[in-house]
């Protein structure tokens, strides 16, 4: 078997030390194969962003090892490109300049013309040619995320990481961008990891889904294979028995997780152990003196 693109070996991640130590991820083992599209689905606050930051190298594991093509990750690098949840565009640069920052950095040897052509191609690819000289503040949320996508794809990353890229968008824009990301991804089939809280999105886009159990001390659940033919079509999928089955399975698993994680519903309240003391009685005076 070939070396996995990303491998987690008994990775745990915690913040703080001693008494105040909070464990976010606990004993994660994970392996992502070449060309695979993996979706990690989890509840809010289950440590999804921590997981993806370990893959980028923005975070170092508290214990265990994160390997990229067999080598421990020492820090972030453009070869593991990430689409951030909050777009992270630099507001003082235009669309062109934002993409250029990445392209200039990754292809310093290219001629100026070649770089410019490259930047324009990718801005065109996400359909923003008309807004190429606009600033992020002049763009809608969906357009900003497109810029962020263009910025990452223009550097041709070996591994494409997406941290809830569409989480803040409305349903319509979301659907459009899902199609777009898939279209661009299928053009060269790089390894991709999608972090999401939307099961449908995960099934629609990924080859494999891993649920992340809710934190604290989250671990990975059982994997679900999505054997749906590509290219996938949303309307067709809704009638696909395979899709329905997988969707029900994953939802059942997540619902069960949510149930077991909820604090036991216990309506009895422990009563405080108090004895009435009447003022003026001997016991009241005694209590008074005892204090």
């Amino acid at each position: 078997m070939s070396i996995p693109v990303i491998e987690f070996r008994n990775v745990s991640q915690w913040y703080g030390e001693g008494e105040s130590r909070t464990e976010v991820l606990s004993d994660i083992n994970l392996s992502i194969a070449e060309g695979e599209f993996l979706a990690i689905v989890g509840f809010t606050g289950s440590g999804k962003t921590t997981l993806v930051n370990l893959m980028t190298g923005l975070l170092r594991p508290s214990s265990g090892q994160v390997l990229y093509r067999g080598q421990p990750i020492k820090g972030p690098a453009p070869e593991r490109g990430i689409i951030f949840q909050n777009y992270s565009l630099l507001p003082w640069y235009t669309v062109y300049q934002n993409v250029a920052l990445a392209v200039d950095q990754v292809y310093p040897d290219w001629s100026k013309d070649r770089r410019e052509g490259h930047i324009r191609t990718f801005v065109e690819m996400v359909g923003l040619s008309h807004a190429i000289d606009k600033f992020p503040s002049e763009l809608s949320g969906g357009m900003r995320q497109r810029v962020s996508i263009a910025r990452v794809l223009a550097t041709d990353p070996d591994l494409l990481l997406m941290d809830e890229p569409l989480g803040a968008l409305d349903a319509l824009t979301r659907g459009n961008l899902q199609d777009e990301i898939l279209r661009i991804w299928s053009a060269n089939r790089r390894t991709a990891v999608l972090i999401t809280n939307d099961v449908d999105e995960g099934i629609f886009m990924a080859d494999r889904i891993l649920p992340l159990d809710p934190g604290p001390a989250a671990g990975l659940g059982p994997e679900f294979r999505i054997d749906l033919a590509r290219p996938r079509d949303k309307t067709d999928l809704n009638h696909d028995p395979n899709f329905k089955r997988v969707r029900t399975e994953i939802l059942n698993y997540l619902v069960a997780l949510g149930e077991s994680n909820r604090p036991r519903a216990d309506n009895s309240l422990p009563l405080p152990d108090v004895q009435p003391i009447m003022p003026g009685t001997r016991s009241f005076v005694a209590a008074w003196h005892r204090d």
Partner: peptide, 21 residues
Amino acid sequence: QDYLNVARVLQLGIGKKIFRV
């Protein structure tokens, strides 16, 4: 921190990091 993360992922040098971010 988001802007700094962009600089880190792109591995911007210290000069670029200061003047462009």
